[in-house]
Each structure stands twice: as C-alpha cells, then as structure tokens.
Design a binder for these strands. Structure first.
Lengths: 207, 207
DNA sequence: AGTTTATACTAATACTATTAGGATAAACTA
DNA sequence: TAGTTTATCCTAATAGTATTAGTATAAACT
C-alpha cells in the first residue's frame, strides 16, 4: 500500500503535485473524448508511467471520477458565489444564476457532464462527495429563494426555484450538445437566456 | 460474412426475429445499467450464445447502438403523433408536446439517453440515422410552429419553439436523473409541467 | 443426393482494470 | 555515516472487453 500520513513535507508536496497532474490530465482526456472515455491506460500513457503506478494515488478509476466529482461541485460553488455576488434585483439575481450555470458548463464541460449528466457507467459518487454536492446545491437554493419576496406567483418558492433550474439546465444541456464551443449569449440555445428571463419577468413580477 | 439478400422467407423471418431479440435484450441491459453499459459479452450471455456469433447480425457494438438510435427516433416520432393528435388550442398543443416529451423519456429511458443525452463514448450516429433524427425533429418543429399564430411574443417562432423544447428537456432531464420511476405529473420536476405552461400562457397569450 | 451457405463455434489478438510481488532510491534513524 | 524503512515505481499475471479468422454444421436450394 502507500500512505501512512507521516510523509515528509517534501514528499507530501510531491505527492500532491502528482495528484494534481493526474486530475488535470484526466480532465484533458474527458474534455477531448467525453466524460466516460477516461481510462487508466490513457492516463498512464500521457503521464509516461505504467498503469499500475496510478494505484499509488487512487485505488481505482472510479475514485478518480469521484475526486473530479468533488472538484466539480467545489468549483461550481465558488463560481456561483463569484458570479452572483453583486446582483441587485431578483431579475438580476436570476439572470446571473442562469448565466453562471451555462458559463460553468462551457468552461468545464467535462465536470458539468460528470456532475450533472452522470454519463459514466458504474460511477456512483461516494457518500462524502454526495454530501458535498447536496450541500452546495442547497446553498444555491437558499440564495435564490431569498430574493423571492419580490415575486408574485402562486407557486411554492421551492417549485419556482426548481422551475428556474430546469430552464437553466435545459438551455445549457441543449447548448452543450449542439454548440459547446460557442460562448455565453451565442448560438441557438445559448442566446435564449434573455428570452427565458423575459418569460419569468412577464409572469412573475409584481405589477 | 453473412447476408446475400436472397434469403428464404423462413430464414429471413428467423433472422429478423433474432435481430429483434438482440435489440430487445440490448434495451434491457441499457435500462438496467445505463445506456453506456451495453457490452457484446453481456448480450451474448443473456442470449446464450458466444460473443462472436453476434457479428452475424451486427458488424460492431456501435452498429447496435446505431440501430437503437434509429429505433428511438422512429418510436419518438410515432409517440408524438399519437400523443398530440387531438389538441385544440395552442396551450393544449404545447401541454401535450411537453407531456409527450417526458412520457417518452419515462417509458423508454434507455432510448431517451441514447438519442438525447449521448452518453456512449465513441458512438457517433451514422449519416442515415442522423438524417432520420433531423427529419423527425423538424416534423416536431413544424407542428409546434403551426400553432404560433395565436401567440403574442416578440420572439421569432423558431426561438419560441427552441425555448419550449429547452424547458421540456430541462424538466425531463432533471426528472429522469432524480425520480425516473415516477409517472408523469409526479415528483419534484415531473409535477412542474403545469407551472411551466402557466408561465408561457401568462407571457404569451393574446389579451 | 449433393452443393451452397447462414449461423454457430473455437482460437487468437489487442485492448481494458486491477492485484501481487519485487526493485530502487529517497528519507528517516541509530 | 551506515543501516533501515518505505514511497514509488516497475514487471508479470488475471480477468474482462471488442473484434477477426477460420472451421464445423445443418438447414435450404438445386
């Protein structure tokens, strides 16, 4: 086996650097060929080591996926915080949230697939990762629900949030499967966020 | 190789029956373990033959996926025609279209995944299959655009259709990844179609 | 009755994940 | 400094995957 959590600082540093390189290379592969296309062999080829050597750092391919799943939700949370922070009105907040959703997918397509589309056969997030993902999603819900005092609708706040997320997800998923290379605001589905917001505004803003 | 398209009726019939069984079994496997989990070996195990025997009917695993991709779009088209046929108002038509979208996914999750979420690494639909899928999608677009004379909006008809499809897709995708076993109208996202329709109605119906 | 051939098979090749066990060199310790 | 420990790599092996080549058989055709 490998770790005995009394590594020297230098070894610790090396080890972390190696793990970082593995994860970065894994993301490259997934980005090029789809989230489910990651293999230990291809990873080893690019890192110029033999496949078994990877088992010093991760105990299975699925554990690599799990680390990336966690990374995805961590980055996602940070991304949202930064993106939404200076919203004024609820329309503003919702616009930024939808944009943030799509921008994250465009910038991190491999993590978006892994975290939100589950295309990898056999991959089930670990309990720990699942907790992180649930926590981060609840953050977002709380955030969005907070602004709903200005909204006029007979839906429950949770339902309104779910509906907005479904719209954001639908536009993003279709954008990613049609024109993933186009930036925010461009393309058949990527350009429809304003239209979706207009819909919400017409239906929900207080007269 | 195998075919020489001068098969006796009986052999022809047998062959078609075998192919049907292969595709049905493939769908079973995909339904149980995810669309990307189909393997020649598992298929052969369930059919009680050796893996190479399958190559008498399909020249590769990807060709099986391709046949199912075509089947998916064929069934999808039929499903829509039947589901939408007696719509009266545009609200009606859109409601039925959204319901049809989700019902198809619930009833054929493996085909929905394969056709609309592309989770299979390395699978690219053949030119023929792609044409079928494009044709069927255009049917749906024509159908939905037809009713838009009653709608009040500053969007292009195509954009309105795209937006509605994105909403249907978003609700369906989230329903399928959260509570795929629940029927239409139930569950966190499955119950939100009326809310989405209300949104469209409030924003678009002529006063 | 004899020939053709669709359909199955076995055997082999080249991938994949993973485990076991050994070599090495860096780091720790006496 | 010399000796020990161990993190990290390796090779070799097992078992599962897709696919191809070549062969046997029995159903169908002549």
């Amino acid at each position: 086996m490998s770790t005995k959590n009394t590594l020297s600082p230098r070894r610790q540093r090396n080890r972390e650097r190696t793990i970082q390189t593995i994860l970065d290379t894994a993301r490259d592969i997934m980005r090029e060929n789809g989230a489910a296309a990651l293999t230990i062999h291809e990873l080893a080829r690019r890192l110029e080591i033999r496949p078994p050597s990877l088992y010093n750092y991760f105990s299975s391919l699925m554990e690599i996926y799990d680390a990336l799943f966690q990374l995805g939700f961590t980055l996602w949370d940070k991304h949202f915080e930064e993106y939404i922070q200076n919203a004024q009105t609820w329309q503003d907040e919702i616009r930024l949230a939808m944009e943030a959703y799509m921008v994250f997918a465009i910038q991190n397509p491999e993590l978006f697939q892994l975290c939100f589309e589950r295309p990898v056969p056999g991959f089930v997030p670990s309990e720990e990762s699942l907790q992180i993902s649930i926590g981060n999603l609840e953050n977002l819900y709380a955030r969005i629900s907070k602004v709903q005092t200005d909204i006029q609708s007979d839906l429950e706040p949770k339902q309104m949030t779910d509906l907005m997320i479904a719209i954001a997800h639908g536009l993003t998923a279709l954008h990613m499967s049609n024109e993933p290379q186009l930036p925010l605001g461009q393309g058949r589905f990527g350009s429809l966020i304003p239209a979706a917001l207009d819909l919400l505004d017409k239906a929900w803003s207080k007269k």
